[in-house]
Design a protein around this nucleic acid. Structure first.
Lengths: 345, 345
DNA sequence: GATTAGCACTCTGACTAAGCGAGTGCTAAC
DNA sequence: GTTAGCACTCGCTTAGTCAGAGTGCTAATC
């Protein structure tokens, strides 16, 4: 049961109008604004059919029509066309990203900022997941009599460290020995892998003196690994939604805000999404059934994968937002090729 | 022009009632609930005097009275008594803080969480300011042909590092040499000091080979120092305010949320506040003139100073909140004495 | 002189009714 | 199949009413 050409035109017109004005659109205004060559009455008939098919809804009898999630889905899948960014936006992006090029996290945060500034919606960025990262080396360093630093370095240049206080004294030699020992054991293995295999067993304890030091260090090592696996979430433009009519009710606004109160939950959800530009509309989401969510992935050094996202009402300029996100993630992936990459020797 | 004993009693009663119910309180309800031995009419007269003195206001002619900022100030300064925490809260606190004792940032974040859970307000925590931190050593480590890690370790065990890509090749020896070189130059100096003195000049370049390596490393070094000076801000319970009647208007709620959108500004403001428990009420704040803000400081190793804070409407249980914060910061300072301290050998 | 009872007055908030405007749905004509 | 016309529906706004809470003042009382 396909839609006729005219039905598609009308649907598109309704979506455009509703996205713009956030108000149910009536047959008359469609007929006036869009030159479809038919009268309001005809449009009313088509609207009625579209409603029956589930593409439109009706807040109440004497109101105009509102696009349903199904309509937006159709729009995103087949109707929408790629948009070119304005020169202004392009310049804004390149300026901002250039400025922070060598600071990894700052660049990612700036990307999220740009996203919320340009779309006027809420955006976020996730630093790349590191579960595929492999260990390059591990080093222990002295701070004072009882305090040492444990440092884990990944092969993509990721670094994480913890300061830990030992219950036993140590010597420089024992630290060096244990560092080597651990590096040999774990080098080349992924963080996930190391964390999962119950490593306490793994490390060879050929030398007696190391045994107690190792015992002291292991919990901190595990903690540091976990820490290294954590991705950072940067949220931007949360208050933007207050300017949208759909969030003029305090309850709606609260629900929206509360989504992001549980950062961990949200981060997990976002990590689970497929790669590339992914759009989920309204009901397709587990929570936030009245929002749409668009995510896209960028790559670091062609390997590690991070995410950008935009959240807003289902009434959203899908064409502009997806185009922008595609542009931004390409730009990011490009930026992150050289500095961390191994492809310019 | 001091207040009489009875006026103080009435003021206290009004504050109690208003803090509890968020509604203007009338003379009759005071007379009924609090046994002051006088009739509503007398209370009305006193109220009228209190209003003249600026302790009460009047939303409109036929409404009850509402305490002014001045009244809360009086209450906080002289009327309020220290409250003991409930056994339940004490247990909650010790459980939660114990659980994360060895993870510094996690502990601080948990303190903020506790604060918002117990008070049902918005809370935050700042990791300690590190401008007084002194440098212990600096180390450069190889990752691959062109990539190295720069690591700065402070004498309190603070560690920060950056991965940087060099434009020139390097040798292990040159890294070691530069590490030593930099450590000798900066050891014992505060981060602030090092960052301010235009260090490019400072490092001795006795050996020619180091010169270009040094030139490559310096920008990253400065960036890392800056990074090390940054404090982290953890906000908790932002959505709690949606449950308060004073934020049932969307505009109020938006203003509140927007305060925290500029994290940097907010952080700076909070760092400027005096040590100890500090209460600022309504108009005493630069922004958020309809909020009260309570901050308290905790200490790490008796030296570095971090902050906890609570933000809510001026209608707030000042006695409970300040008591809680005192308890929490003492607890934190206690926790942070041993692990990072040097006082148990 | 301080306190209190009594009462007129004020203001809010909830409720109701009327009127307006936007938009539909149906019917009959084209 | 398309369109004009028209009755009808529904929500929103405005005005009006009423009850309730509370004050402020006055005059009586302790």
């Amino acid at each position: 049961m396909d839609l006729s050409e005219r039905q598609l035109q009308i649907l598109q017109a309704i979506i455009n109008d509703y996205v713009e004005n956030a108000e149910p659109v009536g047959s008359r205004s469609i007929a006036k604004k869009y030159d479809l060559g038919v009268s309001p009455a005809t449009i009313r008939n088509e609207m009625s059919d579209l409603e029956e098919m589930g593409y439109l809804t009706h807040p109440h009898t004497s109101a105009g029509r509102v696009p349903s999630d199904k309509a937006y889905r159709l729009y995103v899948n087949t109707l929408m066309k790629k948009k070119n960014l304005s020169a202004r936006d392009k310049r804004l992006i390149s300026d901002r990203l250039q400025a922070s090029r060598d600071e990894f996290d700052a660049t990612i945060r700036h990307a999220a900022e740009l996203l919320s500034e340009i779309t006027h919606l809420t955006s976020f960025a996730l630093t790349p997941a590191t579960n595929e990262e492999t260990i390059a080396f591990i080093r222990l360093m002295p701070v004072d009599e009882r305090t040492i630093i444990l440092m884990i370095v990944g092969e993509s240049g990721n670094v994480t460290n913890t300061t830990m206080r030992l219950k036993v004294p140590y010597t420089q030699e024992s630290l060096d020995l244990l560092s080597k020992n651990m590096t040999v054991t774990y080098k080349g293995r992924t963080l996930d892998d190391v964390l999962k295999s119950h490593i306490i067993e793994d490390v060879g304890t050929d030398i007696e003196a190391l045994s107690s030091l190792r015992g002291n260090v292991m919990p901190g090592f595990l903690r540091t690994l976990e820490d290294m696996l954590n991705v950072n979430l940067y949220m931007e433009g949360m208050t933007n939604i207050f300017n949208l009519p759909e969030y003029s009710s305090i309850d709606r606004a609260r629900d929206f805000m509360q989504l992001f109160a549980q950062k961990d939950w949200f981060t997990q959800k976002m990590l689970q999404r497929a790669d590339g530009v992914v759009v989920t509309i309204g009901d397709e989401n587990t929570k936030m059934k009245d929002c749409s969510l668009i995510t896209a992935t960028y790559h670091v050094d062609g390997k590690l994968v991070g995410k950008l996202g935009v959240i807003g009402p289902t009434r959203m300029k899908y064409d502009e937002v997806t185009s922008l996100m595609e542009y931004l993630t390409n730009n990011l992936s490009e930026s992150f090729r050289l500095p961390d990459g191994k492809d310019d020797e």
